[in-house]
Amino acid sequence: MIYIILSVFLGLFIMVMAIVAVQTDNLKVAIIATGIVSLFASIMFLIYAAPDVAMTEAAIGSGLSTIIFFYVLNKIRKSND
């Protein structure tokens, strides 16, 4: 039961963060929101008894791809403002 309540909250939070990521005008906020979506998805994977996938998502989906987004944004922003 506790897992159902937890996963309902995680799912709602993931959806809200996804909408924030698509709708916001600030690119930094959008990238951080994408990272948060991945991080909370990895907690959901753990509830679904998939620790391998959870580790991969936490290391690659929310760690490295956020960093790559920020590298590229950094290269581009220098000239914009």
Partner: peptide, 25 residues
């Protein structure tokens, strides 16, 4: 540790490689 123990515990080559890349970051 993560990729050497891939056959016993959660983890493996992809996760270990990503962790090493984050050390480089």
């Amino acid at each position: 540790y993560v990729f050497i123990n891939g056959h016993l515990t959660p983890g493996g080559g992809f996760q270990g490689g990503a962790i090493i890349a984050s050390a480089i970051v």
